[in-house]
Design a protein around this nucleic acid. Structure first.
Length: 804
DNA sequence: GCCGTAGGACTACCA
DNA sequence: ACTGGTAGTCCTACGGCG
């Protein structure tokens, strides 16, 4: 008999399987009081929209069409005529359904002669959650019955579900005495994991540690690990760079050794897919979280605020940035030696392996709340959110809005269209040139979320652009007009996001320790701030040059009006970049500045507000290296609490040596905190003589620069490229190893050009003091000291004219 | 052949 | 593979000089 069930569950994953020739949605859901299970929805079919070019075409004719692609007859299971919004007006469309996803691209091609095809490239599982209105991480109420062994969905609707997910963090070690690990030959020697308080290291040697479990063979070790995942009923599997390394490696080793690595639910195999540029690992019925991807996302998107600040995104660096602790480290190249080494070495290795999993567990806990909220805000699965760019998240959110608003989703642009868009960039923000100098008493104000509030205020959306004189419209300085009514989906989506964020921030004030609220606020901010970029993104479905250009034009107009008002109020505006102004208080008080702020805000549209960022006791702007004007995007400010805020200076750039950065930091501090020119000069002179006397450790001289292209595709020479090539020639590192990576190099004495002198840190046994003095220390510090009237000669001291 | 410089390629930063 | 604005490095090419 039919067994009816109804559960409230979180949705871990949505995909589809073909049953016969019918593509059938499959949902992996986990709910209270029930095991995680697959649910099949047989009632949902793939479809596309057709905007017919011939108005006499009707649904009956469409149904009878015999569409073919080569030898295949395309199955059409339904045709429905509908009214839908397209580019701001209503159009008649056919919704053409089929039985199998493989017919969808064929439909797109063969429908070309009847009109324009839309929504043909929306993945089936995304189509499903959009149409059903479910957000996987919010959860759903599923009503289902059992057919044989499987659950079949009768009804699914959105719900708000609280449910804890079980996660497992893991890490593997491989035995690779020569170079990088080779999947076919080099065995996995250890698998460590941390799950629900269980911490273990699985390995194939006897090691005297209570957390170590020893197996006869690599095969048995992998089998046991698979069994852990199944028996713990793990929902989320987290690794560090595991999508590119650990998981593919284990898959291959299982193949080589005959082990069982079927870690999906129902013993399904892991699938590897491309997702844009990143590798996405899919584990059926579970969620793969590569914490490295997440860290990269956060460091790119949320960098400005406190979140993380690490030079490199290795596990240990990110761990250090988050916890302030130092993780137990082993040089990856020495792992095989420890494995072949003494009892102590083996114990060390096991400790290290476990430490990696535990560190990963910390990172996981730090990042996962944000990632869950990102999934909720954009309405996608957690696994998808973890491999998505902000552009993809915004796009998905807008597709949901479009569906709810009965609007057709615009198609992706063609390659030629993309090239055309890229060849026509828009004018961006305004940046005021500062006057170089040291200043006291500065007030900094900025517009929070300037671009989102402009989009909302002026109803900026591709569909609201109008040319009609009679309608009510806003006009941007770029000349584009936007209807005041009705709200476009982009402004209305943004209005909802910012409105929600306001509420969250209020709630967070009352509950400051609530991590979920903080994460949600962060997620809302990240996504809201990406809308403008998405409007101007060449691959965007909602690209609009006029909209993007209007956003920046209005941004420029608002900030210039702000500068104007501040000057009229008697302030000197030292600097301004995009959405901020720096006021010199001079004879005026903080209260005067706040008074101006209040008065000015009352003149602004309701959704825009200039806010106090902070007051600073002193600040430095420097001149440009070449000319005499001040440098933009470079300044240092000392707040009243003693904190120094530094932007753009060499010391925040990783492609400058540690000595130069550290010296610059000390000089800035001396000037901002003590106003002491002499102290600053002494700092520089001391470092210069340390360099001359060869007393500076090589590690402080390392310059890091990323090779962002393939090694062969560079036109010219550069030090980092030359250093990399030397290492490849000597066989110390491989091309694969270095491409895309950050090159750590040192400038040595041998050679004439900088490129000739540059070698990898690990190959460097000397350094060129002249280079570090002339090209690192002096340029980094002189530009600051110049503002105090210090000359180059004063800095170098005796011995600087050695060339004569 | 040496010098200085203009311009291109490139990277990493700010918002 | 969300945008544009910006500084600064190193390299190459080029013109002037002798």
């Amino acid at each position: 008999m039919d067994e009816k069930i109804e559960i409230d569950a979180l949705i871990l994953d949505v995909d589809y399987v073909n049953i016969g020739d019918k593509s059938t949605i499959r949902i992996a859901a986990t709910g209270k009081g029930s095991d995680t299970a697959f649910f099949y929805d047989k009632s949902f079919s793939p479809y596309v929209y057709l905007i017919p070019s011939n108005r006499r075409l009707d649904a009956e004719t469409m149904k009878r069409l015999d569409l073919r692609s080569k030898d295949t007859r395309i199955e059409i299971s339904g045709v429905e005529e509908k009214e839908i919004k397209h580019a701001g007006r209503g159009v008649r469309v056919f919704k053409i359904s089929t039985t199998n996803t493989r017919y969808v691209p064929m439909l797109r091609d063969s429908l070309g002669e009847f009109g324009e095809c839309y929504e043909h490239d929306i993945l089936f599982w995304k189509r499903y959650i959009i149409d059903k209105g479910i957000s996987p991480m919010h959860g759903a109420r599923i009503t289902a019955h059992k057919e044989g062994d499987v659950f079949v969905v009768d009804k699914i609707e959105k719900a708000d579900v609280k449910e804890d997910l079980t996660h497992l963090c893991f890490d593997i070690e491989t035995y690779n005495p020569i170079g990088a690990p080779r999947q076919e030959k080099d065995p996995v020697i250890m698998i460590s994991y941390s799950c629900n308080g269980n911490r273990k290291v699985l390995t194939t040697k006897k090691i005297d540690r209570e957390f170590v479990i020893c197996f006869e063979s690599e095969k048995e070790m992998i089998n046991a690990f698979s069994e852990v995942i199944r028996s713990m009923d793990v929902d989320i599997i987290a690794g560090y760079n595991s999508s590119n390394f650990d998981i593919p490696y284990l898959v291959k080793r299982a193949e080589v050794t005959g082990a069982d690595f079927a870690i999906g639910r129902g013993r399904e195999q892991v699938k590897m897919e491309h997702h844009g540029l990143v590798e996405a690992v899919k584990i059926p019925g579970r969620i793969n979280v590569d914490v490295y991807n997440v860290a990269k996302f956060v460091s790119v998107v949320g960098a400005s605020e406190k979140l993380i600040r690490a030079n490199r995104l290795t596990l240990s660096e990110v761990y250090g940035a988050i916890t302030g602790d130092v993780k137990k480290m082993v040089d990856r190249r020495n792992i095989w030696q420890l494995w072949d080494g003494s009892k102590d070495d083996l114990e060390n290795l096991a400790d290290y392996s476990l430490a990696d999993s535990l560190a990963l567990d910390e990172l996981y806990k730090f990042f996962i709340n944000l990632e869950i909220e990102v999934s909720k805000v954009s309405g996608t699965t957690l696994g998808e959110a973890c491999v998505s760019t902000t552009g993809q998240l915004v796009e998905f959110l807008l597709m949901r809005y479009a569906y709810d608003n009965k609007e057709i989703v615009p198609n992706k642009p063609s390659d030629s269209e993309i090239r055309m868009r890229e060849a026509n960039p828009i004018e961006g923000a305004y940046v005021k040139t500062p006057d170089a100098g040291v200043y006291r008493n500065i007030g900094v104000f900025d517009f929070r979320g300037l671009y989102p509030s402009i989009i909302i205020t002026y109803n900026i959306d591709p569909s609201t652009i109008c040319n009609d004189e009679s309608a009510e419209f806003y006009q941007s300085p770029a000349g584009t007009r936007f209807l005041k009514e009705p709200a476009g989906i982009i402004p209305s989506a943004l209005r909802r996001l910012t409105g929600e964020r306001l509420g969250i921030k209020k709630a967070a004030k009352k509950d400051p320790d609530n991590k979920e609220l903080a994460a949600r606020s962060q997620a809302l901010k990240i996504i809201a701030n990406s809308f403008y970029g998405y409007l101007g993104y060449a691959r965007s479905r909602w690209y609009s040059r006029d909209c993007a250009a209007s956003v920046t034009a209005l941004g420029r107009a608002h900030i210039m009006q702000t500068i104007d008002a501040a000057e009229k109020a008697g302030f000197r505006v030292l600097y301004s970049d995009t959405d901020s102004i720096f006021l010199l208080l001079e004879g005026k008080s903080k209260e005067d500045a706040l008074g101006f702020l209040k008065k000015f805000n009352s003149s602004l549209p309701e959704s825009m507000e200039l806010e106090l960022e902070d007051f600073y006791v002193s600040g430095v702007f420097v001149g440009k290296r070449g000319g005499d004007s001040g440098a933009k995007k470079k300044y240092a400010l000392l707040s009243e609490s003693g904190r120094i805020k530094i932007r753009g200076f060499e010391l925040v750039r990783r492609d400058w040596s540690g000595v130069a950065r550290e010296t610059q930091r000390k000089v800035l501090e001396a000037i901002l905190k003590n106003g002491s020119k002499d102290e600053a000069i002494k700092i520089v002179k001391d470092v210069v003589s340390m360099l001359r006397e060869n007393k500076v450790p090589i590690g402080d001289l390392v310059i890091r620069t990323q090779l962002r292209k393939r090694i062969d595709s560079y036109d010219g020479k550069s030090p980092e490229l030359a250093a990399a090539k030397k290492a490849i020639e000597k066989g110390i590192r491989s091309k694969d190893d270095l491409e895309g990576s950050t090159i750590n190099y040192v400038v040595t004495r041998s050679g004439s050009s900088v490129s000739e002198k540059a070698v990898l840190e690990e190959m460097a046994d000397n350094y060129d003091p002249d280079y570090y003095i002339e090209h690192q220390i002096i340029p980094a510090t002189l530009k600051i000291l110049k503002e105090l009237g210090v000359s180059e000669e004063e800095l170098k001291g005796r011995g600087s004219q050695r060339r004569l």
